[in-house]
Amino acid sequence: MTTERQSGIRIPVAIDPNPMSNEKNEKLAAEFCDTFQRLRTGMEKVLVGQDEAIRGVLTAFFAEGHALLEGAPGLGKTALVRTLADAAGLDFSRIQFTPDLMPSDIIGTNLIVENEHGRKQFQFEPGPIFANIVLADEINRATPKTQSALLEAMQEKHATVAGVSHPMKKPFLVLATQNPIEMEGTYPLPEAQLDRFLLKLHAKYPSGDELHEILHRTTREVAPVVTPVPMENAPALREFVRAVPAVREVEARAVQLVLATHPDRAESVPSAKKFVRYGASPRGAQALMLCAKISALLDGRFHVAKSDIDAWALPALRHRIILNFEGEAEGITSEAVINEALAAGGLS
């Protein structure tokens, strides 16, 4: 039985290295697939035409990462996050980011309260960030100071108020949305902060048939209700995901993809050399590997393949590549650089 050291506590992990536990591992894998599929089905009852975004959000959920959703208004970004919370039966809070939003508005603050003895004392009043699933709506409308407060919580999984550290709930998932159209009065997330997001997902515009389906569901029928999926074993499932092995040759694929986006590396692709200012960070490789492990389990495998890594290259790396001005002036996108890196690796 392996253990993991976290916050000084040894937590038993579900993975048993004993070869005799094959059945147990297979059962755990089946449970993971079942849970994932049930969550997905539940979300698809409400959301139409957002399959890729749903899969990405659920992957981020099991990988213990955060996701940034980008899309035009009205594409169901907020509904997607709320539906996930409903389907998983977890605490949900929504923060509407505005320019006058303060860090304390999201983290919480110390209030002076009277105790039963009539003495006044500080009591921490937690903000909306203390929930399992936090929707940071239009995150680019808040000032960098407020954004930083949220991002610290995302990375460190705790918030510090008046010198006291308050841990986040488990699981803790921030799903931020931003609108790419309205740029006036916004504070685009700095690249260093964007890097904290495991995935950047695009909410795509629905097709004609999907629009018909949306109309049918929202104007004729009663809004569908999502049945919560039992998530008691979710921590074990998350640990199980991390135990999925990847051999060095497969890991090399993730490494090669990340290095190919750097302009000054031998592995870089031509477009990266010309149009990229900074390439993807090591967090990009971590994100690739974690998402690939989930894909492998969903595919019925217990090991990561190169194709799993390639499948997540765009959502995991697109927000980690900073173009130079030449690239931006030429209208080059980070997706184009990633696609070139994928093609250069022989698999695309």
Binding site: I15, P19, N22, V244, P245, A246, V247, R301, V304, A305
Partner: peptide, 26 residues
Amino acid sequence: THDRFLTVLDLSTAEPAGLTSTVQRE
């Protein structure tokens, strides 16, 4: 094959850990 053969070969030379045995079985 999703890198199955390569994975098993590499895992068979490494120390058995985690899901090695389950991977081999699959």
